[in-house]
Design a binder for these strands. Structure first.
Lengths: 333, 333
DNA sequence: CTGTTAGCGCTTTCAC
DNA sequence: GTGAAAGCGCTAACAG
């Protein structure tokens, strides 16, 4: 015996009204006489009727679902963004389909297509690198898109970020202020605009203002991982650097630990500033000075922006920059 | 001018076949002559036809999406499970709707209902505490459910976990072996069966085997957070404990840091073993000995089990226990 | 304020 | 191997 699903039609019959009326009360349409509304509500209650969102989606062309493309939920940076996204989504009665891409071009395209096939009302994209192919799909589809903690050099779609350039400049300034001349710039792939353009330029700008010449040998490109940080010891030592601006907390803490494990005193002999102010920076000993990013808010604001886009509201500015801070801890003098 | 969506009907017309045939080729039904298949495929390509998954879901009563209820994605423990879930989901062509519950009863019920309304094919539930109301909804709906890293005392639904009791016993044994007599048991809410039943019993079992009497004053119930760990100093000191088995890594590292910050030597004067072997345990100094749980696998296996349930395959055992380990690091002698 | 009537785009018998 | 036709459960004009 199959599960007997009860439909809007059953409710209509039992309440002696039309499907349209039932639909109206379910959707909170005010054009229903209180008495009929009450009657319908009672039948709905009695029959334990639950509207089928799929049918609703097909008929109305709105699924109240948004797609979220994320490199990796297990990464705390992106997970924090995701939490902000989901909270605001829930607030506006949307659900999120979460899909991991590993930042892989093929997977991104794949997932984007299945998201579109599922008729999501909008998409939040997170990723270090926005490929032309992905950009192409974005403009080809009429589905609104917002980037969260990710940059589109052309600003074609909405996005929410902090000013990575200025933040990195501030961090570098701080290191210069305490007397460092040879400051390492440690980041993820430089092909990612957020690293290779924004952050690197912030670093260069700071150096330039202090008349320190840029040295290619102080630029370190690596994976965003604790292990990569641990593996940096020799290269950093050989470079003669006495401080480092790091683009990722795991990386920074890895560097910190390998330095202290090798007997290098932080911050006395080497200073470190990192970028996300995650729990890792508090747990490490010494704790790590860091730029603080409003990660949850970036996600939340991105989702809020997306709701406006999905609603076809007028947007004053679709490239949103949120404020950042610099939290001094024990890895700097 | 509205976006002109092209449908299966357009393809059928252009290819001079029926909708049924197009549907067959789209769904890989073998009952299509190679020649017609080729012709249809060409038209699909030319028109850039994308099947509408919502319509498909309505007609077939399968949405190929599963709901995932998670306390908090920003928590690394659950995020790791979620990653395993999504990878296997993708492997089997499912998408996941991710919904945060904060472990709150009301939100869990809410989210469960909207997931059901969206006609998900299955549900993965994560949560410390499975309330009767949630259990009721589970059995009321015919949608298959699997718990990941979460316990149902009654084993009514499928679940994937490790043997928390034995794991905690092993950890406690280890501490007893190195001479500790007063061992603190630090966990989250004892009302959660995983803490109050499994873990606590593992702890008690270990004590009993070594003829150490159980002392209520050594049981510490707190939030799963770094801050809660930091706040534990006085209570732990006053208890006279010389070691602790901790149920959560953030908590453990907080305890570790407050101890060392107060000059207590770990492991010489105090030993700590924690439960999840997350990156936190490697970052901390000293690094923290920990039970290791196959978090990714728990998620992956849970999702795999769910695919079988959704397929109505015969299941030999729906309560799955995965192996754990004990990774010795520097917080124990 | 309420009912009628078309679909939304696809799957799925059931014939042929 | 292929087509015709009947829905899936709901929304959205359009009347009245």
């Amino acid at each position: 015996m199959e599960k007997q699903t009860i439909t809007i039609y059953d409710v209509a019959r039992e309440a002696s009204v039309s499907m349209a009326t039932v639909s109206r009360v379910v959707n909170g349409n005010p054009n229903v006489k209180p008495a009929t509304r009450k009657k319908v509500l009672e039948v709905i209650e009695r029959l334990d009727y639950r509207p089928n969102a799929v049918a609703r989606g097909l008929a109305s062309k709105r699924t109240t679902t948004v797609g979220v493309i994320i490199p990796d939920v297990a990464n705390t940076y992106f997970a924090s963004l995701a939490r902000g996204i989901d909270d605001v989504a829930t607030m506006y009665k949307y659900n999120i389909i979460l899909a991991n891409s590993d930042g892989d071009d093929k997977k991104e395209i794949n997932v984007l297509n299945t998201l579109l096939a599922k008729q999501v009302d909008g998409i939040i994209f997170m990723g270090h690198h926005l490929t032309d192919e992905v950009r192409g799909e974005f403009s080809r589809s009429k589905t609104p898109v917002v980037l969260a903690g990710s940059i589109d050099p052309d600003n074609q779609v909405g996005s929410v970020n902090i000013d990575y350039l200025e933040a990195t400049k501030d961090a570098t300034d701080e290191l210069i202020k305490s007397g460092n001349k040879k400051i390492a710039f440690v980041s993820g792939a430089l092909i990612d605009p957020i690293n290779g353009v924004s952050r690197l330029n912030g670093y260069k700008k700071s150096l330039a203002e202090s008349k320190i010449s840029f040295n290619e040998g102080l630029v370190f490109e690596c994976d965003y991982s604790y292990k990569a940080g641990l593996g940096l010891f020799d290269r950093i030592q050989n470079s003669g650097a006495t401080a480092a601006v790091v683009a990722d907390d795991e990386l920074a803490v890895g560097l910190l630990n390998t330095l202290t494990d090798h007997g290098v005193k932080v911050p006395e002999e080497f200073e470190i500033i990192t970028s996300n102010n995650s729990l890792y920076t508090d747990i490490a000993r010494p704790s790590v000075t860091s730029i603080s990013q409003p990660l949850y808010d970036i996600g939340a604001v991105a989702m809020r922006l997306l709701t406006k886009l999905m609603n076809k509201e007028e947007i004053d500015e679709k490239t949103i920059i949120l404020p950042y801070g610099l939290i001094k801890k024990d890895s700097t003098k």
